[in-house]
Design a binder for these strands. Structure first.
Lengths: 156, 156
DNA sequence: CGGGAATACCCATGCTATCCCATAATGTCC
DNA sequence: GGACATTATGGGATAGCATGGGTATTCCCG
Protein backbone atom coordinates (compact mmCIF):
# COMPACT_ATOMS: atom_id res chain seq x y z
CA UNK A 1 0.00 0.00 0.00
CA UNK A 2 1.17 3.49 -0.75
CA UNK A 3 0.72 6.81 0.96
CA UNK A 4 -0.66 9.65 -1.16
CA UNK A 5 -1.57 13.26 -0.62
CA UNK A 6 -1.32 15.79 2.14
CA UNK A 7 -3.65 16.21 5.11
CA UNK A 8 -3.52 18.77 7.88
CA UNK A 9 -4.92 17.77 11.27
CA UNK A 10 -5.10 19.44 14.61
CA UNK A 11 -2.83 18.61 17.50
CA UNK A 12 -4.85 18.70 20.70
CA UNK A 13 -3.64 20.01 23.98
CA UNK A 14 -2.45 16.57 25.05
CA UNK A 15 -0.23 16.27 22.00
CA UNK A 16 -2.45 13.84 20.12
CA UNK A 17 -3.24 13.90 16.38
CA UNK A 18 -5.53 11.83 14.25
CA UNK A 19 -3.66 9.97 11.56
CA UNK A 20 -5.67 10.55 8.36
CA UNK A 21 -8.04 7.70 7.72
CA UNK A 22 -6.60 7.27 4.23
CA UNK A 23 -3.21 6.52 5.74
CA UNK A 24 -4.61 4.23 8.37
CA UNK A 25 -6.29 2.32 5.59
CA UNK A 26 -2.99 1.96 3.78
CA UNK A 27 -1.52 0.47 6.92
CA UNK A 28 -3.96 -2.44 6.79
CA UNK A 29 -2.64 -4.75 9.39
CA UNK A 30 -3.28 -8.42 8.56
CA UNK A 31 -5.16 -8.90 11.81
CA UNK A 32 -7.69 -6.09 11.56
CA UNK A 33 -6.90 -2.57 12.71
CA UNK A 34 -3.37 -1.21 12.51
CA UNK A 35 -1.67 -1.27 15.85
CA UNK A 36 1.33 0.97 15.68
CA UNK A 37 3.75 2.89 13.52
CA UNK A 38 7.41 3.80 13.79
CA UNK A 39 8.43 7.44 14.04
CA UNK A 40 11.88 8.80 13.36
CA UNK A 41 13.20 12.30 12.97
CA UNK A 42 13.99 12.84 9.32
CA UNK A 43 17.70 13.40 8.95
CA UNK A 44 17.36 15.60 5.90
CA UNK A 45 14.32 17.69 6.66
CA UNK A 46 12.61 19.24 9.67
CA UNK A 47 9.99 16.53 9.76
CA UNK A 48 9.11 13.17 11.22
CA UNK A 49 9.46 10.07 9.05
CA UNK A 50 6.76 7.50 9.62
CA UNK A 51 7.17 3.82 8.78
CA UNK A 52 4.70 0.98 8.87
CA UNK A 53 6.03 -1.47 11.42
CA UNK A 54 6.64 -4.28 8.96
CA UNK A 55 8.42 -2.00 6.52
CA UNK A 56 10.71 -0.84 9.27
CA UNK A 57 11.34 -4.40 10.28
CA UNK A 58 12.37 -5.24 6.73
CA UNK A 59 14.97 -2.50 7.06
CA UNK A 60 16.26 -3.90 10.29
CA UNK A 61 16.51 -7.47 9.05
CA UNK A 62 19.66 -6.57 7.17
CA UNK A 63 21.19 -5.69 10.49
CA UNK A 64 20.78 -9.18 11.78
CA UNK A 65 23.08 -10.41 9.02
CA UNK A 66 25.93 -8.26 10.19
CA UNK A 67 28.37 -9.49 12.78
CA UNK A 68 27.34 -8.39 16.20
CA UNK A 69 30.26 -6.21 17.15
CA UNK A 70 31.28 -4.99 13.73
CA UNK A 71 31.64 -1.26 13.19
CA UNK A 72 29.08 -1.42 10.50
CA UNK A 73 26.48 -3.02 12.69
CA UNK A 74 27.25 -0.55 15.40
CA UNK A 75 26.77 2.50 13.33
CA UNK A 76 23.65 1.34 11.60
CA UNK A 77 21.92 0.09 14.69
CA UNK A 78 22.60 3.42 16.31
CA UNK A 79 21.21 5.51 13.49
CA UNK A 80 18.30 3.19 12.88
CA UNK A 81 17.07 2.39 16.34
CA UNK A 82 18.33 4.97 18.78
CA UNK A 83 16.14 7.78 17.54
CA UNK A 84 13.19 5.73 16.35
CA UNK A 85 10.07 5.27 18.42
CA UNK A 86 7.09 2.99 18.17
CA UNK A 87 3.78 4.70 18.90
CA UNK A 88 0.40 3.07 19.23
CA UNK A 89 -3.00 4.18 17.98
CA UNK A 90 -5.73 4.89 20.45
CA UNK A 91 -9.27 3.70 19.82
CA UNK A 92 -9.95 6.73 17.62
CA UNK A 93 -6.95 6.35 15.33
CA UNK A 94 -4.83 8.97 17.01
CA UNK A 95 -1.22 8.85 18.12
CA UNK A 96 0.66 10.83 20.70
CA UNK A 97 3.44 12.83 19.09
CA UNK A 98 6.65 12.46 21.07
CA UNK A 99 7.46 15.88 22.48
CA UNK A 100 11.01 15.91 21.25
CA UNK A 101 10.21 15.03 17.66
CA UNK A 102 7.35 17.50 17.48
CA UNK A 103 9.62 20.21 18.71
CA UNK A 104 12.40 19.33 16.31
CA UNK A 105 9.92 19.59 13.47
CA UNK A 106 8.46 22.82 14.79
CA UNK A 107 5.01 21.27 15.15
CA UNK A 108 2.70 23.05 17.56
CA UNK A 109 -1.04 23.27 16.92
CA UNK A 110 -1.33 21.62 13.53
CA UNK A 111 0.42 18.77 11.76
CA UNK A 112 0.65 18.08 8.04
CA UNK A 113 0.68 14.44 6.96
CA UNK A 114 2.55 14.12 3.68
CA UNK A 115 2.37 10.90 1.69
CA UNK A 116 5.66 9.76 0.16
CA UNK A 117 4.98 6.31 -1.17
CA UNK A 118 6.11 3.61 1.18
CA UNK A 119 6.35 6.00 4.08
CA UNK A 120 4.82 9.31 5.04
CA UNK A 121 5.99 12.33 6.94
CA UNK A 122 4.63 14.69 9.56
CA UNK A 123 5.49 18.38 9.14
CA UNK A 124 4.67 21.74 10.52
CA UNK A 125 2.08 22.75 7.88
CA UNK A 126 3.74 25.96 6.70
CA UNK A 127 7.12 24.25 6.42
CA UNK A 128 5.56 21.41 4.47
CA UNK A 129 3.97 23.83 2.07
CA UNK A 130 7.20 25.75 1.58
CA UNK A 131 9.19 22.62 1.05
CA UNK A 132 6.76 21.26 -1.46
CA UNK A 133 6.76 24.49 -3.40
CA UNK A 134 10.51 24.54 -3.41
CA UNK A 135 10.76 20.96 -4.60
CA UNK A 136 8.39 21.61 -7.44
CA UNK A 137 10.32 24.70 -8.44
CA UNK A 138 13.61 22.85 -8.35
CA UNK A 139 12.21 20.00 -10.36
CA UNK A 140 10.89 22.35 -13.00
CA UNK A 141 14.18 24.18 -13.32
CA UNK A 142 16.04 20.93 -13.64
CA UNK A 143 13.57 19.52 -16.09
CA UNK A 144 13.20 16.41 -14.07
CA UNK A 145 11.18 13.67 -15.64
CA UNK A 146 10.37 10.45 -13.90
CA UNK A 147 13.28 8.10 -13.86
CA UNK A 148 12.26 4.48 -13.53
CA UNK A 149 15.38 3.73 -11.58
CA UNK A 150 17.09 5.43 -8.77
CA UNK A 151 19.49 8.15 -9.98
CA UNK A 152 23.09 7.67 -8.91
CA UNK A 153 23.18 10.87 -6.91
CA UNK A 154 22.11 14.45 -7.00
CA UNK A 155 24.21 16.93 -8.95
CA UNK A 156 24.02 20.10 -6.84
CA UNK B 1 10.96 -7.85 20.09
CA UNK B 2 13.24 -4.95 19.36
CA UNK B 3 14.50 -2.04 21.40
CA UNK B 4 13.66 1.38 20.01
CA UNK B 5 14.33 4.92 21.01
CA UNK B 6 16.21 6.76 23.69
CA UNK B 7 14.94 7.44 27.19
CA UNK B 8 16.64 9.37 29.95
CA UNK B 9 15.85 8.33 33.51
CA UNK B 10 17.07 9.45 36.86
CA UNK B 11 19.52 7.50 38.95
CA UNK B 12 18.50 7.75 42.58
CA UNK B 13 20.86 8.06 45.45
CA UNK B 14 20.96 4.31 45.93
CA UNK B 15 22.13 3.77 42.38
CA UNK B 16 18.80 2.49 41.05
CA UNK B 17 17.21 3.38 37.70
CA UNK B 18 13.90 2.51 36.17
CA UNK B 19 14.29 0.57 32.96
CA UNK B 20 11.88 2.29 30.54
CA UNK B 21 8.55 0.50 30.38
CA UNK B 22 8.86 0.20 26.61
CA UNK B 23 12.04 -1.83 27.06
CA UNK B 24 10.60 -3.97 29.80
CA UNK B 25 7.73 -4.75 27.48
CA UNK B 26 10.15 -5.78 24.74
CA UNK B 27 11.74 -8.21 27.17
CA UNK B 28 8.54 -10.27 27.11
CA UNK B 29 9.43 -13.09 29.37
CA UNK B 30 7.37 -16.21 28.60
CA UNK B 31 6.36 -16.58 32.24
CA UNK B 32 4.97 -13.12 32.90
CA UNK B 33 7.17 -10.28 34.06
CA UNK B 34 10.79 -10.04 32.96
CA UNK B 35 13.13 -11.22 35.66
CA UNK B 36 16.61 -10.11 34.83
CA UNK B 37 18.98 -8.75 32.22
CA UNK B 38 22.68 -9.13 31.50
CA UNK B 39 24.95 -6.10 31.78
CA UNK B 40 28.39 -5.80 30.30
CA UNK B 41 30.73 -2.87 29.81
CA UNK B 42 30.78 -2.06 26.13
CA UNK B 43 34.27 -2.61 24.80
CA UNK B 44 33.99 0.04 22.11
CA UNK B 45 32.07 2.80 23.76
CA UNK B 46 31.77 4.35 27.19
CA UNK B 47 28.50 2.61 27.87
CA UNK B 48 26.90 -0.49 29.30
CA UNK B 49 25.61 -3.14 26.91
CA UNK B 50 22.39 -4.74 28.02
CA UNK B 51 21.24 -8.15 26.79
CA UNK B 52 18.01 -10.00 27.34
CA UNK B 53 19.00 -13.21 29.08
CA UNK B 54 17.91 -15.53 26.30
CA UNK B 55 19.60 -13.45 23.62
CA UNK B 56 22.80 -13.53 25.59
CA UNK B 57 22.50 -17.28 25.79
CA UNK B 58 22.08 -17.53 22.05
CA UNK B 59 25.33 -15.62 21.63
CA UNK B 60 27.17 -18.11 23.74
CA UNK B 61 25.88 -20.84 21.48
CA UNK B 62 27.47 -19.28 18.42
CA UNK B 63 30.58 -18.91 20.44
CA UNK B 64 30.65 -22.64 20.89
CA UNK B 65 31.04 -22.99 17.13
CA UNK B 66 34.50 -21.51 17.30
CA UNK B 67 37.33 -23.89 18.02
CA UNK B 68 37.95 -24.35 21.66
CA UNK B 69 41.30 -22.87 22.71
CA UNK B 70 41.59 -20.88 19.51
CA UNK B 71 42.77 -17.36 20.08
CA UNK B 72 39.52 -16.07 18.78
CA UNK B 73 37.42 -18.17 21.10
CA UNK B 74 39.66 -17.21 23.96
CA UNK B 75 39.39 -13.56 23.38
CA UNK B 76 35.70 -13.49 22.77
CA UNK B 77 34.76 -15.66 25.67
CA UNK B 78 36.84 -13.49 27.92
CA UNK B 79 35.35 -10.20 26.80
CA UNK B 80 31.88 -11.61 26.61
CA UNK B 81 31.62 -13.48 29.85
CA UNK B 82 34.27 -12.35 32.27
CA UNK B 83 32.88 -8.92 32.90
CA UNK B 84 29.20 -9.68 32.40
CA UNK B 85 26.76 -9.46 35.26
CA UNK B 86 23.17 -10.47 35.73
CA UNK B 87 20.96 -7.95 37.49
CA UNK B 88 17.38 -8.39 38.67
CA UNK B 89 14.42 -6.07 38.54
CA UNK B 90 12.80 -4.88 41.71
CA UNK B 91 9.02 -4.74 42.02
CA UNK B 92 8.92 -1.36 40.28
CA UNK B 93 10.95 -2.34 37.23
CA UNK B 94 14.21 -0.84 38.41
CA UNK B 95 17.70 -2.27 38.44
CA UNK B 96 20.71 -1.44 40.51
CA UNK B 97 23.57 -0.20 38.35
CA UNK B 98 26.82 -1.89 39.30
CA UNK B 99 29.10 0.83 40.62
CA UNK B 100 32.03 -0.10 38.46
CA UNK B 101 30.11 -0.09 35.21
CA UNK B 102 28.34 3.14 36.01
CA UNK B 103 31.66 4.77 36.72
CA UNK B 104 33.27 3.45 33.58
CA UNK B 105 30.41 4.92 31.59
CA UNK B 106 30.54 8.21 33.46
CA UNK B 107 26.98 7.82 34.67
CA UNK B 108 26.11 9.89 37.72
CA UNK B 109 22.65 11.38 38.17
CA UNK B 110 20.97 10.46 34.90
CA UNK B 111 21.14 7.47 32.59
CA UNK B 112 20.20 7.33 28.92
CA UNK B 113 18.71 4.07 27.68
CA UNK B 114 19.48 3.68 23.99
CA UNK B 115 17.66 1.09 21.93
CA UNK B 116 19.78 -0.77 19.40
CA UNK B 117 17.57 -3.52 18.09
CA UNK B 118 18.26 -6.77 19.85
CA UNK B 119 20.10 -5.12 22.70
CA UNK B 120 20.15 -1.71 24.32
CA UNK B 121 22.76 0.39 26.03
CA UNK B 122 22.98 2.63 29.06
CA UNK B 123 24.95 5.85 28.64
CA UNK B 124 25.71 9.08 30.33
CA UNK B 125 23.07 11.22 28.57
CA UNK B 126 25.37 13.86 27.08
CA UNK B 127 27.75 11.21 25.78
CA UNK B 128 24.87 9.30 24.24
CA UNK B 129 23.62 12.37 22.48
CA UNK B 130 27.05 13.18 21.11
CA UNK B 131 27.66 9.66 19.92
CA UNK B 132 24.29 9.40 18.25
CA UNK B 133 24.77 12.67 16.44
CA UNK B 134 28.17 11.55 15.26
CA UNK B 135 26.92 8.21 13.98
CA UNK B 136 24.11 9.85 12.05
CA UNK B 137 26.48 12.38 10.58
CA UNK B 138 28.92 9.68 9.55
CA UNK B 139 26.20 7.55 8.04
CA UNK B 140 24.88 10.48 6.10
CA UNK B 141 28.28 11.35 4.72
CA UNK B 142 28.67 7.79 3.57
CA UNK B 143 25.29 7.90 1.95
CA UNK B 144 24.19 4.93 3.96
CA UNK B 145 20.83 5.81 5.32
CA UNK B 146 18.34 3.03 5.51
CA UNK B 147 19.63 0.11 3.50
CA UNK B 148 17.28 -2.73 2.82
CA UNK B 149 20.18 -4.99 2.08
CA UNK B 150 23.63 -5.23 3.36
CA UNK B 151 25.74 -2.58 1.65
CA UNK B 152 28.72 -4.18 -0.07
CA UNK B 153 31.06 -1.53 1.25
CA UNK B 154 31.41 2.19 1.21
CA UNK B 155 32.38 3.78 -2.12
CA UNK B 156 34.30 6.89 -1.11
C1' DC C 1 29.80 -13.15 66.56
C1' DG C 2 28.46 -8.24 66.33
C1' DG C 3 28.15 -4.03 63.64
C1' DG C 4 27.99 -1.56 59.41
C1' DA C 5 27.14 -1.19 54.76
C1' DA C 6 25.02 -2.63 50.80
C1' DT C 7 20.98 -4.64 48.90
C1' DA C 8 16.09 -6.29 48.37
C1' DC C 9 11.28 -5.48 49.44
C1' DC C 10 7.46 -2.49 50.37
C1' DC C 11 4.45 1.48 50.19
C1' DA C 12 3.48 6.45 48.84
C1' DT C 13 3.08 10.12 45.36
C1' DG C 14 2.79 13.20 41.31
C1' DC C 15 2.51 12.93 36.57
C1' DT C 16 1.51 11.27 32.04
C1' DA C 17 -0.60 8.37 28.85
C1' DT C 18 -4.44 5.66 27.77
C1' DC C 19 -9.19 4.31 27.77
C1' DC C 20 -13.71 5.55 27.04
C1' DC C 21 -17.57 8.27 25.89
C1' DA C 22 -19.58 12.48 23.67
C1' DT C 23 -20.20 15.60 19.72
C1' DA C 24 -19.84 17.93 15.40
C1' DA C 25 -18.72 17.71 10.68
C1' DT C 26 -18.18 15.29 6.64
C1' DG C 27 -19.00 11.84 3.33
C1' DT C 28 -21.76 7.79 1.45
C1' DC C 29 -25.40 4.95 -0.03
C1' DC C 30 -29.75 3.90 -1.60
C1' DG D 1 -32.10 14.23 -0.72
C1' DG D 2 -32.47 11.97 3.64
C1' DA D 3 -30.64 8.44 6.92
C1' DC D 4 -26.64 6.48 8.42
C1' DA D 5 -21.60 5.52 8.89
C1' DT D 6 -17.13 7.36 9.33
C1' DT D 7 -14.00 10.83 10.71
C1' DA D 8 -11.89 14.40 13.39
C1' DT D 9 -11.89 16.43 17.82
C1' DG D 10 -12.64 17.27 22.85
C1' DG D 11 -12.53 16.02 27.65
C1' DG D 12 -13.09 13.24 32.11
C1' DA D 13 -11.67 9.27 34.55
C1' DT D 14 -8.37 5.70 35.34
C1' DA D 15 -4.32 2.92 35.16
C1' DG D 16 0.54 2.71 34.57
C1' DC D 17 4.99 4.75 35.11
C1' DA D 18 9.02 7.07 37.14
C1' DT D 19 10.61 8.44 41.44
C1' DG D 20 11.35 8.81 46.51
C1' DG D 21 12.00 6.99 50.90
C1' DG D 22 11.41 3.68 54.92
C1' DT D 23 12.61 -0.70 56.68
C1' DA D 24 13.95 -5.47 56.95
C1' DT D 25 17.68 -8.74 55.41
C1' DT D 26 21.88 -10.30 53.90
C1' DC D 27 26.69 -10.19 53.47
C1' DC D 28 31.21 -9.12 54.86
C1' DC D 29 34.91 -7.35 57.71
C1' DG D 30 36.80 -7.29 61.59
Amino acid sequence: MLFFGTYVNKVDRKGRVSVPAAFRGALQHPAGAPEAIILRPSHKEPAIDVFPVDYFESLSVSLADLDLFSDEQDELSLTLFASALQVHFDGEGRVLLPREMAEAAGITTHAAFVGRGHIFQIWEPAAAEASKREAIERARRRGVTLPRRRPAEEPK
